[in-house]
Every structure is written in structure tokens, then in C-alpha cells.
Design a binder for these strands. Structure first.
Lengths: 145, 145
DNA sequence: TTCCATGCAAACTTTTTGCAACGCC
DNA sequence: GGCGTTGCAAAAAGTTTGCATGGAA
């Protein structure tokens, strides 16, 4: 409920487990930005007895270590990105898919914002919304609820 | 699970109920950007028997009608804004509080993004992150988990 | 009178957590 | 062998939904 920044603050000691390795590999192998459950399913193909809890725990740890990125994307489900560097994303309003935006801006508005708020400004998230190719009404075909 | 854009597409007919009125009033009365539950608690003071389900249903309806805004904010809980016009927000990484950023930019990057993606670009969300005044380590006082 | 909206409670979805067994270092 | 990790299952947390009743129009 309450966001907790440093769950792995001391990052004590981490062991190299097959689970963690495979999760990282699978995440880096895809260009989409999968949900925890999607990653779980991919990893399950290689480690059948892995549990969803382990996937969550490792995604947590890996992002705390800066090896992956927990996407700060609007919407209900968390998504993860094998590329830990911050970059803009675009999300499909229809199906929720998330893709990278292959164009980067250097708009750093944080200074302007810092002057206008009493928060200590730390970062900015730029997200675009739209309709992905798969959801676009090609010629006419649509399925409605 | 799958985002559904037009749950209230036909917006058939809407009756004016006290519940809906009060929810809208309360939301417009606050400058913070409350979660559904926070709104529920405020409204409860005036309509004790209201249910959380009703609050959710009305927030849904009101945002579909464009009377309020369902905030596309990263993080676990939905938040709502009595101001339906899109504008930037800043979120506290510590406590999750969301505030308006009283400074607006006209950075419309959608054209550039449209050229770089095969999505149909519809909108952009600019969100800042930081630490709110209440969570800042004034002199030294902090409470950790 | 019609049928949209409500209250209540149960169902769902997503994420977190407790615990004993396991296995890396 | 110590202790970080895992699998399993139960618990949390947030949101949605079914249904009979209630109340605008």
C-alpha cells in the first residue's frame, strides 16, 4: 500500500540461482515489456516448478540492483523492461501493450518543475498513449463488447 | 485485465442521484488527488450507507462523461482528479501522494513520436516523481520500516 | 411504471508474505 | 554449515460484479 523505496537497501548478499538467471535472460530476450505473469509463463517453459512468488521476488531484486527496470506505467499491471536505462514508452489504450519509443528527447523539465513545487523533484516519466498496430481498425474489422 | 475503453460508450441515460452529486462535490473540493477509498471515506461522512462499489461505479461513469479525470499515474492505486483537463502531476515516491504541478509546458512531442512508431499516437502523460514536503527529512527525523 | 442506480457481499485479479525445505557460497 | 532462496499456499489489497431492492423521471 505504502510505497517502500529501499526494500533491498542493504542488498546484503545475493546468490546466483538458476531462477534468477533465467528470469533475467528471458526478460532481456523480449522487446515487449512483459507483466510479471507473462515472464512467469516464459520462465516456466524452462523451469517448470518455478513459482510466481519467486518471479516477483526476483523482479523486485533485479530492479533494486538496477539490472532491470520496473516500468512506471499507468494501468493496473506492473511491467518490466530488460533495459534499465530510462526511456519513453507508448501504451496501447486498447490492449495495454507497451512498446519503446525509438526516439529520445532531452527535455529535462525537472528544473522548471522544481521551481514550481515544494516537492524535491527526482525524476520524470514521459509516457505516450495510442493504439497499437494490432488494435487498429485496419479496414473495418472491430470487435466491441 | 484487458483495458476497456468504452464501458459507458452509449452512456444511455443517467439519473441524478444524491450519491453521484456528493461524490462529484467532494472530489472537486479537494486539491489532493484522492484514491477511490479516500473519496469513499469523505462521502461516507455525508451519506453513511453508501457503498464502496457505488463510489467506484460513479467514478467510472463520471470519468467516462469527462466530468472528472481518472489519473494515469504510475503506482498501484487509481487516483481521481476533479479537474478533467490533462495537466502534469508529481508523485511522492515515499508516501504515494499526488499533487498538481502548477506550471505548464506546451511540449507536444506527439508528432515526433508519431513519426517514430507504428502506434496511432493519441496522448502523452508527463509525470514527475520526488519527495513531498511531509516526507522530506526536515532536520533528521525519519521513520523507517 | 420503468429501468437506472444502490447496498451488500462475494468474486476476481494482482502482488505480497509466512514457512519449512533447499542449495549456493 | 550458514543463510539467502525457493515452492507452496494463504493472505492482502484493490477493484469489479451479481442480485434483489430502491428511487429518479
Amino acid at each position: 500500500m505504502v510505497p517502500n523505496m529501499q526494500k533491498h537497501a542493504g542488498l546484503a548478499q545475493t546468490r546466483t540461482t538458476r531462477q534468477r538467471q533465467v528470469i533475467l535472460e528471458e526478460l532481456r530476450q523480449v522487446t515487449c515489456h512483459p507483466t510479471a505473469d507473462a515472464i512467469y509463463q516464459r520462465v516456466q517453459a524452462r523451469i517448470p516448478r518455478i513459482s510466481l512468488g519467486t518471479v516477483y521476488r526476483n523482479l523486485d531484486l533485479l530492479s533494486a540492483q538496477g539490472q532491470i527496470q520496473r516500468l512506471e506505467i499507468a494501468g493496473s499491471q506492473m511491467r518490466f523492461d530488460g533495459n534499465a536505462a530510462p526511456h519513453p514508452h507508448i501504451r496501447c489504450l486498447e490492449c495495454g501493450a507497451v512498446a519503446d519509443v525509438p526516439c529520445h528527447f532531452d527535455v529535462l523539465l525537472t528544473d522548471a518543475v522544481q521551481a514550481a513545487t515544494d516537492f524535491a523533484v527526482l525524476g520524470q516519466i514521459i509516457e505516450f498513449t495510442g493504439i497499437c498496430p494490432a488494435c487498429q481498425p485496419e479496414t473495418c474489422l472491430r470487435q466491441e463488447a
